[in-house]
Nucleic acid binder design. Sequence first.
DNA 1: CGTGCGATGTCAGTTGCTGTCATCAGCGTA
DNA 2: TACGCTGATGACAGCAACTGACATCGCACG
Lengths: 176, 176
Amino acid sequence: MQAAFALYSERGFEQTTVAEIAKRAGLTERTFFRHFADKREVLFAGADALRELLVSTVMQAPASTAPIDAAAAGLEAAGAAIQEGGELPRQRQAIIAASAELRERELIKLASLASALADALRRRGVEEPAASLTAEAGIAVFRVAFERWIDESDQQDLPRLIRQSLEQLKAVVAGV
Amino acid sequence: MQAAFALYSERGFEQTTVAEIAKRAGLTERTFFRHFADKREVLFAGADALRELLVSTVMQAPASTAPIDAAAAGLEAAGAAIQEGGELPRQRQAIIAASAELRERELIKLASLASALADALRRRGVEEPAASLTAEAGIAVFRVAFERWIDESDQQDLPRLIRQSLEQLKAVVAGV
DNA sequence: CGTGCGATGTCAGTTGCTGTCATCAGCGTA
DNA sequence: TACGCTGATGACAGCAACTGACATCGCACG
């Protein structure tokens, strides 16, 4: 992982071969593919943990909490966790932004997050299509907030940006 | 395109090689790659036209129309166009649903649609982050509606499903 | 001191994709 | 009619991502 991150940063994702990563890590190419399904997956190793955090936070919200607010609570928890990573998430995002292939992979990870979120909401008793719509809207909020967080030079608080984005979504959807 | 559709349907996307497609079409593999950037792109050839329709419909909405309703108008137009395709969109979607690689590609096409939509809204004078949020929410509505349209055995009207999904999003975001 | 077992190395092979050069058909022009 | 241009295609070599199969090795456990 360290070797891959370093090389992707130095010369870009498409320009680095798996052979180079393996060599830098002192391993074989074959061994790389035993740990990561493909060349991109290295950058998304922590995605599962994030999804579990999201889901468990949603499930722990009081039963009286509205679906959209339960979703928001989960997303804020995920945002807080990301923020713990220091400069690494920003470096990671810079690598991803530079490659169309990696952006594709990121989108499917976000979609998987959305479906896990919809699932959690359904287990809270939310019906379809409300569960899916809430989940998709939640991920949209997260995405916009995250992008702002990345772009902000001043170190804004990510959970706070998520809350702000949700408020703006409420206004915008209401037809303002 | 016809050869690719047929083979993807018959034996699945991953199981068909470009050489087979080329042979079926009476062409060379090299020629295939001159027309399509990669093996997946065959299935997304019409995406540009759809985006143009979306954007132009959004831009043509009266200036007094709220951003979310302008977006909805564009999405309904796109939905109507898709519906014109008869059984082809359903066949296409069956192929895509069966392959993780293709789902990735579909997501990035939807993301590109979202960014084009946000762009159109900004040109209508909508500020950030409202434009991005409206666009993302609009695409979420579209996605949920489209999925329902695919699943429905009774031939539901896609633009109508989009309108319904938007109404449900409004309710859900308001905290119901 | 064996004996499994999980992680790694080795090697050969397939497939997606690209660069390069040759060929060929149509089409306008001297 | 002959010439030259252009755009589409074929032919071929090559790289890199991945995969399957088998061998090896270190290490815990009995």
